[in-house]
């Protein structure tokens, strides 16, 4: 019992006194990616802008939809979805990726996980900002909506961080899981209302209902587009988030001795 509390305390120092380690490493990761480039990480902004505009223009015609309705919906969905996918897939390889450090220095495992999480938050914020002018242009954005969407981002991070921890442990042990996750996320994309509106497709209600990621997207898309806070989704995400945190700590505690040997 004392062991698990000590372990818990040590892992939690990642968020209290030990945040600078992952903060620095994550910042360096982003800097490293765009070093010597003139506009640096704003390439992310440009890339997602072109992507959203291109996709919006083509698909609104293809699906015979009003651009004013479809483009903002698509933009919110695709930007949040991209964040979720990269966070989950990169996070799943966080322990494998930090293997050289784990095998040399004894640090809380959450340092390595938070490095990936924080790196992805930074990258996400660079594409998130294009939603502001876009939604203002179409007249959707309210100050309240924007403020609560930030809370929504916080909740996405809160609930995905432990999920990523669980996946990272699994991926370190079973090397087949990582490709499984990437293809799984690809598959999930098609059944998640990102490109299409739930109203457009009949018969997929249950797929949407039991898809956790739909609720995550809602936490940002609803405030940004409709200007209200989806309380039901928020409660669900919070509950699942807490449960995932408990599972993640437990899984880490059980596997703490084995992780270095798997790498």
């Amino acid at each position: 019992m004392v062991g698990i509390l000590d372990f818990l305390y040590r892992e939690l120092t990642t968020f209290r006194g030990g945040w600078h380690a992952w903060y620095l490493l994550a910042l360096q990761d982003v800097k490293g990616r765009y070093r010597r480039s003139v506009i640096g990480p704003f390439w992310i902004t440009l890339t997602s802008m072109f992507f959203v505009l291109g996709l919006g223009l083509v698909y609104s015609r293809l699906l015979n939809l009003d651009l004013k309705e479809y483009l903002p919906f698509l933009a919110c969905g695709i930007i949040v979805w991209t964040f979720i996918v990269t966070l989950v897939t990169e996070g799943a390889s966080a322990i494998i990726g930090s293997g050289h450090i784990i095998k040399q220095v004894n640090m809380p495992i959450f340092v390595h996980l938070m490095r990936v999480v924080f790196r992805n938050i930074i990258i996400f914020l660079h594409s998130y900002i294009i939603l502001v002018p876009l939604l203002m242009w179409y007249g959707y954005l309210t100050l309240y909506g924007f403020a609560v969407s930030v809370l929504g981002i916080g909740m996405i991070v809160f609930s995905l961080t432990p999920l990523v921890a669980l996946l990272a442990i699994l991926c370190a042990r079973y090397r087949d899981v990582l490709p499984m996750i990437s293809s799984g996320m690809q598959l999930l994309f098609f059944v998640t209302p990102v490109m299409w509106h739930p109203n457009q497709v009949a018969g997929l209600e249950s797929v949407i209902k039991y898809n956790f990621f739909v609720y995550l997207i809602d936490l940002v898309r609803k405030p940004m587009l409709n200007g209200y806070w989806p309380m039901n989704s928020a409660i669900l995400v919070a509950v699942i988030g807490v449960a995932l945190w408990i599972c993640a700590f437990f899984a880490l505690y059980l596997n703490r001795k084995n992780i270095p040997y798997w790498l």
């Binding site: 600078h20 380690a21 620095l24 360096q28 450090i101 220095v105």
Partner: peptide, 9 residues
């Protein structure tokens, strides 16, 4: 960076 790995603030 190296300092962070060494656990120094």
């Amino acid at each position: 960076l190296r300092g962070a790995i060494l656990g120094v603030k």
